[in-house]
Amino acid sequence: MPPLRLTDRKRESIVQAAIAEFRDNGFEVTSMDRIAARAEVSKRTVYNHFPSKEELFAEMLQRLWASADSQPYPAYRADVSLREQLRELLDSKMKTLANSSFLDLARVAIGATIHSPERAQTWVSRLSEREETFTTWIRSAQQDGRIKAVEPGFAASQIHALLKAFAFWPQVTLNEPLLTPEKQATVVESALDLFLGWYEIHADKTPA
């Protein structure tokens, strides 16, 4: 990869400074002056790249979504067991939740949205879009007669919550350490047991 141009290096330093300032002091308190000082650039340089704090926040969110999108999610397959497929999905999700950069960005984003319904709505909407993959998978499994009748988005939110209760919220809100690979596997298998134990339709059973 070729080295970044000076202007790109300055832009990156501004973004990293903004993330650090938002994390340390909160969105409302952070000023463009503080961001410029932390990035070791002039205030004018900051404004040349980002006209406002909201633009910087939008850049940060874009990086958050890009980080979340780095793990590919496989499509539903009729010839593979639900447990194997769902484990693959959850393992991909867990890799994102175990990414310290992703969690740091999420921590900043959540802090910045607390006092702004507009920013919060953007966050929630984009998060919902990201989790649509699970909803699509559940819908396909239902159409194949392998998952009980339930609103797919509701079921997808349930299984996400089973992971985030251990591998997202404690780290973001309480600064707990990332889960070890062994703990990640335990959380995934437990989520599979709970989800499939209730929703899976077995060939020798009729739906409840």
Rank of each mutant, 00 (worst) to 15 (best):
A208K: 12
I19L: 14
Q142V: 06
L97V: 13
I201N: 01
R5C: 13
L179W: 10
E131K: 15
F102V: 12
S190N: 11
I114L: 15
A98Y: 04
P2W: 08
A165I: 07
I201D: 03
S81P: 15
V187H: 03
A185V: 09
T186Y: 00
Y73V: 13
W137K: 09
I35W: 04
E200G: 01
P152F: 00
P117D: 04
A39Y: 05
K43P: 12
S116R: 06
S157I: 01
I114E: 07
P3V: 08
L162S: 08
L64R: 13
K164S: 14
A112P: 05
S157T: 10
K183I: 05
R146K: 08
D33V: 11
M1N: 13
D24G: 15
Y76P: 10
T30K: 04
P2K: 13
A203L: 09
R38V: 03
G26L: 09
S128V: 15
S31F: 03
A75M: 11
Y47W: 04
F154T: 11
E189T: 14
L105G: 13
A39C: 05
G145C: 04
T206P: 02
P72N: 09
A98G: 14
I114S: 10
W123A: 07
F154W: 06
V29I: 11
E131N: 15
I14G: 01
T173Q: 10
T122G: 07
S125E: 13
L97S: 09
K183L: 08
A18K: 08
V188C: 00
Q171W: 01
V108G: 00
E189L: 11
L163G: 03
A66I: 02
Q171E: 03
W137F: 11
A203I: 08
A17N: 07
R119W: 05
K95C: 11
I110Y: 12
A141T: 10
E176L: 14
G197V: 04
K93I: 03
S52D: 02
M60V: 14
F195D: 06
V150M: 01
T133Q: 15
N48A: 11
Y199T: 05
D69Q: 14
A36K: 04
T180K: 03
T206F: 00
E129L: 11
A98P: 09
E151Y: 14
S81K: 13
L61R: 14
Q184H: 09
L86W: 09
V187L: 00
Q158G: 04
P177C: 00
S190L: 13
E12L: 07
E12K: 05
V188L: 00
L162H: 08
A191M: 02
H202I: 02
Y199F: 13
A112N: 02
Q143R: 15
R44P: 10
L61M: 14
L174P: 09
V15E: 10
A68P: 01
